[in-house]
Design a protein around this nucleic acid. Structure first.
Length: 431
RNA sequence: GUGGGCGUAGCUCAGCGGUUAGAGCAUCGGACUGUGGCUCCGAGGGUCGGGGGUUCAAAUCCCCUCGUCCACCCCA
C-alpha cells in the first residue's frame, strides 16, 4: 500500500465543509476591507526565500523543500506566502497603478519539520498583505480585519499580542544593550539560550525555561529602547486599535522568526492548540520590497494557520453551524424503472436539488437503509407500481409520511417541500 | 536533528509466554418477499506494523527497523 508522505495530510469530508466555511467568511470580510485575491505559484526560485526570510533563519537553514529542476536551477516549495506576493507585486509593477495595493491569498505552504500537534509539512495559510502605507492606521485596520474574521467565526479564548521590534536603525542598538545585559549572566542561561546568545539574542526573551524567564524579566525593554519614530508609530497603532475596539495586550518579549519584520509585530494565540498556540501572526515589513529590487515600499501583512484555525472551529463543536443543502435519495426497483429514472434524476439534479440515487438494484430495504444512513430528508421511490400510473412516491424520512405525485410534477413538488424546511445544521462534534 | 508514548478487524480498544486472537461499533444478510431508524439472529473481515532473536511454545520477552502521535528546536 502506498500512503501519503509524512506531514502531508488528506483533508476529508465532512471536515472539508469547515474549510469551505472558513474560506468563504475570510473572502467576504477581506473583500469588504478592500483586499483582492492574488494567486501566486507554489514553487519559486530558492533565492527569493533565502533573501527575504533571512539566510540564517531556521526556515531557510533547515526547513525548505528545495530541489533542482531539470536545468539544474534551485527551486523551492514556498515556506510562506509573503515573499511570493512581494515578488509578484514587483514583477508586475503593481505600484504603478495606485500607491496602495491590498491582496489576500490562500493555499498550501511547505516546511520540512517534524510533525506534531498543529504542525505539518504541508500546511495551509490564509494571508493578507498591504503595500504602500507606512501609516500606523494600516497596521491597526489590518489587525481589526483579522480579529473581525475570528469574531465572525465565533472563536473564543483568543488573544492578540503586539510588540514593536524597532527598525533597521534602532534594533541593532537594542541588541547591543541586551547583549551587554546578558553578558555576565550567560553562564546561568539554559543550554539553548547560550546558543541563542550567539545566533539571535532576542530569542532569549521568549525562552520558556524558568531560569531564563527570571533573568530576562529584568532585561531592558525593547519598547523603551526603540527610536522616536518607532515609538510614535507604535503609540499610534495602539491608539487606532483602541478606536477600532480591538482588544490587545503588549508582549515585549515576543520575537518573530523572519528577518524582514520591523516595527509592529503581533501574534494571535488561542487555548487548545497544544504547544503551537499561534493561530495567526504577522507584522510590518517596510524595506522588504526594496530589498527584493522593487521601489522603497512599506508593507504590512499576516498569515493565518488554517489547520490550527480548523482545530479551534472544531473545538467549538455545535456552536459553529454550517448550513448544508438537504439531501434527497431515489430508490429504484426493477429494470424498467432503472431506465426511466435516468432522465428523471438528471431533471431533478439540474433543477438544483441535491440528489443521491441507488446504484445497487438491491432490495428496497437496503436502499432505504442507505438513504437513512446518508441522512436523506426525502426518499423518492420509483418501481413498477408507480410507473404503471406515471407517478412516484415521495417519502418524508422524518415524519414517515408519503405521498404519490405525477412523474412530471416531481421537481416542482420537491422544491415546494424543500423550501419549507430551513437549512439544516450540521453538528460539528461528529467530525 | 533530539527525546518520549503508541502500533492487534474499517474504527475504538481488550488480551501481555500456553488450544483455533476477542469485544463494542461499523459493514453485509435474515427475521420483515415493495419501505429506513428500534430489537433479535447470523455472516464476512486479522501475515497481531515489518524483520531477526530467545523459548518446547511469542500478539505477549529481547534487538533492529518502519509508521504514527506528543514534546524540544522553531514556527502558522
Amino acid at each position: 500500500m502506498i500512503n501519503s508522505i509524512r506531514g502531508f495530510n488528506d483533508i476529508l469530508p465532512p471536515e472539508t465543509s469547515i474549510w469551505q466555511h472558513i474560506e468563504k467568511e475570510a473572502r467576504e470580510i477581506f473583500e469588504a476591507y478592500g483586499f483582492s485575491e492574488i494567486r501566486v505559484p507554489i514553487v519559486e526560485k530558492t533565492g527569493l526565500f533565502s533573501r527575504s526570510i533571512g539566510e540564517t533563519t531556521d526556515i531557510v537553514e533547515k526547513e525548505m523543500y528545495t530541489f533542482e529542476d531539470r536545468h539544474g536551477e534551485a527551486i523551492t516549495l514556498r515556506p510562506e506566502g509573503t515573499a511570493p506576493v512581494v515578488r509578484a507585486y514587483i514583477e508586475h509593477k503593481i505600484y504603478g497603478n495606485d500607491p496602495v495595493a491590498k491582496f489576500y491569498y490562500l493555499g498550501p505552504m511547505f516546511r520540512y519539520e517534524r510533525p506534531q500537534k498543529g504542525r505539518f509539512r504541508q500546511f495551509h495559510q490564509i494571508g493578507a498583505e498591504v503595500f504602500g502605507i507606512d501609516d500606523p492606521k494600516a497596521d491597526a485596520e489590518t489587525l481589526e480585519m483579522l480579529v473581525c474574521l475570528f469574531q465572525k467565526l465565533g472563536l473564543e479564548g483568543i488573544t492578540l499580542q503586539i510588540n514593536s521590534l524597532g527598525c533597521k536603525e534602532c534594533r541593532p542598538l537594542y541588541k547591543e544593550k541586551l547583549l551587554s545585559f546578558l553578558q555576565d549572566k550567560k553562564s546561568q542561561l539554559c543550554h539553548d539560550c547560550q546558543r541563542r546568545f550567539e545566533i539571535n539574542p532576542l530569542r532569549t526573551l521568549d525562552c520558556k525555561s524558568p531560569g531564563c524567564i527570571e533573568i530576562t524579566a529584568h532585561a531592558p525593554s525593547i519598547l523603551d529602547a526603540v527610536c522616536d519614530g518607532c515609538k510614535t508609530h507604535f503609540e499610534k497603532v495602539k491608539e487606532y486599535l483602541a478606536l477600532s475596539q480591538v482588544d490587545f495586550s503588549l508582549n515585549q518579549k515576543m520575537v518573530r522568526g523572519l528577518d524582514y519584520y520591523i516595527r509592529t509585530t503581533f501574534e494571535i494565540t488561542a487555548l487548545g492548540l497544544g504547544s503551537q498556540n499561534a493561530v495567526a501572526a504577522g507584522g510590518r515589513y517596510d524595506g522588504l520590497v526594496k530589498s527584493l529590487d522593487g521601489p522603497d515600499t512599506p508593507g504590512f501583512g499576516f498569515a493565518i494557520g488554517m489547520e490550527r484555525l480548523v482545530m479551534l472551529a472544531k473545538d467549538r463543536g455545535q456552536q459553529l453551524a454550517v448550513s448544508n443543502q438537504p439531501l434527497v435519495f431515489i430508490a429504484i426497483l426493477g429494470d424498467k424503472a432503472e431506465k426511466e429514472a435516468v432522465g428523471l434524476i438528471k431533471r431533478i439534479r439540474t433543477s438544483g436539488i441535491r440528489l443521491e440515487r441507488d446504484y445497487s438494484s438491491k432490495s428496497i430495504k437496503s436502499q432505504m437503509k442507505r438513504a437513512d444512513k446518508l441522512g436523506a430528508r426525502y426518499v423518492l421511490i420509483l418501481g413498477d407500481d408507480e410507473l404503471s400510473s406515471c407517478s412516484i412516491i415521495i417519502k418524508n424520512m422524518q415524519s414517515g409520511e408519503q405521498e404519490k405525485v405525477a412523474l412530471d410534477r416531481v421537481e416542482d413538488r420537491m422544491k415546494e417541500l424543500l423550501r419549507k424546511s430551513a437549512s439544516i445544521k450540521i453538528n460539528l462534534d461528529i467530525l
